[in-house]
Design a protein around this nucleic acid. Structure first.
Lengths: 209, 209, 209, 209
DNA sequence: CATGAATGAGCCTTCATTCAT
DNA sequence: TATGAATGAAGGCTCATTCAT
């Protein structure tokens, strides 16, 4: 939901903590309307600033989007990588944990709209697509592949192409994210990704065993 | 091939058979650039027609999109339903066959861009999203759910929520479609969905057993 | 003076003879305000068209300017060249005639504002400056130099660098043009270029003898 | 050198002596880009000062321009007047000397861009044009006219309208200044005003004799 | 005195849509 | 039926100008 700008006393006083507030506003607006359909006016209003103020911190509309990817998405990937690096249990358990962690980010988190955003704008902004692919997708898939590889090495899983398996792991999470951002609005019973992903991990682990 | 269904007088080479050619052009253009970024100029030029001519058959840009969904996607669903209705083999085999059939449509077919298109525009055109959901997604998921149900009833699969399982079936196909339309352009080795989907069915059937 | 758009019945009917009307309007507006300060809104209003209509015929504001140079200035140079080519009298007489002809174009004519325009925008639009220089200035100077050369050869003038002399011929005409477009507005006695240029030719011819 | 007139306390290296440094910066920037295309940001950066600081000394962008005319141009006129007042030689020699003096200012000097600037902005800033005309042009023309008058009175020149003759004197200098600021950039052989002006004075003196 | 931060107004450009023919 | 010509409504971006500090 897009707020009507936090009421501000009056006049000029406005201390912008920095670009972060603007990015937060942009995240909300882009999530709601998509990138192309978002007007900079909307972003500015959402942030409680003038349109021109956006250009104090960003060179263009697209630059805002790119900064958003870097600031809001990439850190999450790093958190996931740290989690995997420190893991000591079985590959299956790690898979389950990771799936839930990713889902918390990409289905329930504030960046839930990103997959949709990137998919929508990939062809119009190839640079952005490449950035997202390199900085987010490939790193996440690599993480998942490494787990599968670990499971295969440990005899937990049957021999399997880890790159393909990684995509199988991601696919239902992506599905859940997209469902939520595109269709959940009209669901009769509210969409709950948890049982879906539980069944997903169950089935996948069993299927890979 | 789109737009070949409506019977045409045969014989006299018309200037314009009707809306079908326009839709075919729109499909090509929308697939290339996305809906929002496609200019009606482009569609008209691709169809070899004046821009104004589009308005002889369609009320608006969005109406073209909607007609496209109806004409290009819905028939595919009907073909799939027919295939399932006539099936006599095992649920697992049907699943495998159906996955391949869906992938042929949605990954290799000319409507491969539709998932991306719908995802991109769902929030801007809620009516369209609802139409696609009702006419395409839910029918396809229902189809898959019925197969799962059949497999469970036959003892082929362990007891499983068929609605959830249906989503698990679809997810990697959707992934493949989106990958192809959004990222495959920059793949170093050309993206081949076949092995991914094979592994998918293998794993899923095993996991559901 | 910029008119308020010739009253037009009402509604949409408008037959633009072509880009010429737009260029004529642009000439008036640019002459009045200069290129940078002219808004496309003004040009459109002056032409009695919508702003968007300008883009049916020209790619950008600058393109309008360039078209203006080509269409409104270059033909004049060609007329001058023809006049010189056909001349049979003395060099001094030709000089006098040519000075008057140039002045009629560049001081009294509708393109009187061009020297000012080009001078004002030369640094902002180097391409345009180069075009004008090549297509107008150098050709005109070359014309004048050829006359001087002819006069020197005929013993009418003392030996003189024709390129330099050509610039001396032009300078007062340019002065008159600029004075008219920049300062004449506030003259107490209306500015009349004729006696100035007469004295100019007299003095110059005598000085070159 | 601009902005060196107002006495400064001597000794303590101040952060900002006052408006002079700002004007010097403005002169450089305006000369480079022209008035309209110069951003106050550029002027401020060139002066090593914040944009807001400009408003401590000047009311508006235009006010900076006006101050520039007064501070950078007018003193030059006064110097010329002093030179003429003290002259004891022939009118022809004075003419020659004065032409060179003016050219040193307006072709080679740091105010070389002023004619172009004034010409470009005359219609947008009529007040400025009037100021320049009164404070610079008319005084300089008056100076030249007085010399011509002197030469006519002394029998050195034939009877001639001194006001017109003054304009003939100025015209090639103006030409040289404009050529340098607008077109010299693309000259194949570097533009040298000296021979042009030498020929100018020679011819003119001979023509007026 | 000096500035960082912010803004309002404006301009070029685009595009879905319409109308006269 | 079909179109060329035209437009209204926006949207991204710029910049002179102004406060609070």
């Amino acid at each position: 939901m897009i707020a009507k700008a936090t009421s501000r006393p009056r006049g000029r006083p406005r201390k912008l903590a920095g670009p972060e507030d603007l990015l937060a506003a942009a995240l909300r607006v882009f999530s709601e309307r998509g990138f192309a359909a978002s007007r900079l006016d909307d972003v500015a209003r959402e942030a409680g600033v003038s349109k021109a103020a956006l250009y104090l911190y960003f060179e263009s509309k697209q630059a805002i989007f790119e900064a958003l990817v870097r600031s809001a998405v990439v850190p999450n990937v790093e958190r996931l990588e740290a989690m995997v690096a420190g893991w000591r249990g079985s590959a299956a358990d790690l898979l389950r944990t990771l799936v839930q962690a990713i889902a918390r980010i990409v289905v329930d988190g504030e960046v839930a709209a990103f997959p949709k955003l990137i998919i929508a704008e990939a062809s119009n902004f190839p640079d952005l697509a490449k950035l997202y692919r390199t900085a987010v997708i490939e790193r996440t898939l690599g993480l998942l592949a490494s787990i599968v590889r670990r499971g295969v090495a440990a005899g937990e899983f049957r021999p399997t192409d880890p790159e393909l398996a990684a995509r199988l792991v991601i696919a239902p999470i992506l599905f859940a994210s997209l469902w939520k951002t595109c269709f959940a609005r009209h669901d009769k019973v509210p969409f709950d990704p948890a049982p879906l992903l539980e069944l997903h991990v169950d089935t996948l682990v069993k299927g890979l065993a």
